[in-house]
Amino acid sequence: MIRLGNEVMIVDKEEKNVEDLLPVATAAKIGDCTNEEVLKSLGVGNFDICFVCIGSNFQSSLEITSLVKELGARYVVSKANRDIHAKFLLRNGADEVIYPDRDIAERLAVKHSANHVFDYVELAEGYSIFEIPPVAAWVGKSIQDLAVRTKYHVSILGIKSGGHLQILPRADRKLEADDHLMVVGLKKDVDKILANIK
């Protein structure tokens, strides 16, 4: 959030947890956010988004989520470790629940279970973005000539080459052996392409 140019206030009850971020955060406060008076003093209603990032103490996460929403937070994103936690967080004020540990674990599992997948980002409804090498038979041919959308039911969103990412490459762009293709599609369709990569 900070790198993207947002103003960020960090709050933790442990001083050592905020020390490293003091130079980069807009503000850093020390306080127990389960205390309503502490949250009131922060003015949570003035923020566009409040993130509740407590992973080890679900009771505190639930209390803080509920309190920040009651105090006028516009949008609350809370961290969950289990589905049952997510249900309670959503019922008690969270507008969105994230599972960072689970999401990273799933991403790594797909990336390291499938041969020739450099990276992977899950989207929605079964669709994902995969970073893969081109099939050997594709090298030297243009995207248009390959008709990957018609033949394989995937779209090429970008091509990484020499450390640079070209988004939405032109149809006449010829593929090179060391290209990394950013393709979007269903896993089953991408698996068919991967099966042709030696």
Rank of each mutant, 00 (worst) to 15 (best):
G43I: 05
L62I: 12
S155K: 02
H153N: 14
S128A: 07
N92A: 12
E125T: 15
R170S: 14
E131W: 00
E96W: 07
E125D: 14
E37Q: 14
G162M: 09
D95C: 11
N115R: 00
L157G: 11
E36L: 13
E15C: 00
G140W: 09
L21H: 06
A114V: 02
I49A: 03
P23G: 05
P134Q: 02
V184K: 06
D119E: 10
R102C: 08
K111Q: 12
G43Y: 01
I30P: 14
V121Y: 15
D20N: 12
N17M: 04
D119S: 12
E122R: 11
L175F: 14
L39F: 14
V76T: 02
S61C: 13
I129W: 12
R170H: 02
L90K: 10
G93H: 05
I49Q: 02
Q59D: 04
A171P: 08
L165A: 07
E14C: 07
A114M: 14
E106L: 10
Y120I: 03
L146D: 08
V183L: 03
I143N: 09
D20C: 03
E63L: 09
R74G: 09
P169W: 00
V68S: 09
D172F: 07
G162R: 01
I84G: 07
K174D: 08
G185N: 04
V121P: 15
K141R: 12
I64C: 01
Y99R: 03
D32E: 06
K87N: 09
H180P: 00
L123R: 07
F88M: 14
E37G: 10
V76K: 13
E19I: 13
V139S: 11
D145M: 06
I132M: 01
T65K: 13
D83G: 13
V110G: 00
C50N: 03
A80W: 14
P23I: 03
D189I: 07
I159Q: 10
S142M: 14
L67A: 06
L21R: 04
H153G: 06
Q59P: 01
P134M: 04
N92L: 09
